[in-house]
Amino acid sequence: MAKLFKKLHWADALIIVALTVFVATIWLRIDGTLNYKWNWSIIPRYIIRWDEHEGVWVANILLQGLISTIRVSIYAGILAVIIGVLLGIARCAQNLTLRLLARTYVECLRNIPPIVVIFIFYFFLSEQVVSAFGIEKWARGIARSENPEVWSFFFGDMRHFPSLISGVVVLAMFESAFVGEIVRSGIQSVGIGQREAARALGLGWVDEMRFVVLPQAIKRVLPPLANQFITLVKDSSIISLIAIQELTYKTSELVVSTRAIFEAWLTTAAFYFIICFSLSMLFRKFEKKRSAT
């Protein structure tokens, strides 16, 4: 701790003081002007509760939302990387039509507000996919089965599985545009000499990308992809607008039922901060290890 204080510059101390004053001012306005009655004691039982029937501690509304947010982020992140890699490769393809289609997709999604994108994909694509493949009927059958525990572990309440799929699809489609641009920049950062050497060895475009360009590009795009995943976790709150049962949606339900507005939202903000900050530290550690090797 002493070493930390020694590293602080006078500007850092000034910023800390300013933030402290700002937080204190907000706190006093809430406590005084708004005459708000704080009730932090109710928050723990909405995170975890004792199930008297089963005799165990179980996740309550906030923890359920947090777990759902983690699920959506992981699945949407995987799908966004798959689509984004394909988009990045297509943006660098020799075929003009393929390049134009990929660029149109990327530019449209990057220049339209995310809320609009979410609604468009949800009502015009995701709902159609769920209906076309009979996902809702299948999920309800799983929910009524005798042993749905494995499915529940990976996907939560199977009655909400269609909503989960919809959230994953719309979030992945939106984030894939940014992943595609990251992959494209990584591919184009590989020196022209590397490509010329590959062509000199008689490699075609596909083999050139597979054996020469992509292995080098992947190493360069890992840090920005890690940052994009953190952004995806925060962006997952948007899908609460289409009734996906993630953390923000559950917090809204809690606020309506308890009127603990500030306690609920501050707790939710703390959950998001813990996830994103932990991921940031984890990715930074991996990056240091990779640069050291």
Rank of each mutant, 00 (worst) to 15 (best):
I112Q: 09
G191I: 00
R91G: 00
T33E: 13
I244W: 04
I230E: 12
R140A: 11
Q194E: 12
I120R: 01
I48E: 08
P223N: 04
I26T: 09
E208N: 14
T293K: 14
V116W: 08
G202L: 09
P224H: 09
W265Q: 05
A264F: 06
V116F: 10
G88E: 00
I242G: 04
S237N: 06
W50K: 04
Q245M: 07
T258A: 06
R259V: 02
G134M: 14
R290W: 11
Q245W: 03
A18F: 13
T69Y: 01
E253R: 14
W205A: 11
F229R: 04
I61K: 14
M281Q: 08
A24D: 01
R140K: 12
I43F: 13
R199W: 11
L101G: 14
E208D: 09
A24H: 03
S163N: 15
K7M: 09
E253V: 06
V221S: 10
N35S: 13
R140N: 12
S280L: 14
V150A: 15
P224Y: 14
E107F: 06
K7Y: 05
F273C: 02
T25Y: 15
K288S: 05
L125C: 13
G186T: 04
Q128S: 10
I238Q: 05
I16Y: 14
A270F: 15
Y75R: 05
S145K: 03
F153G: 08
L266N: 04
E287H: 07
S152I: 06
V179M: 15
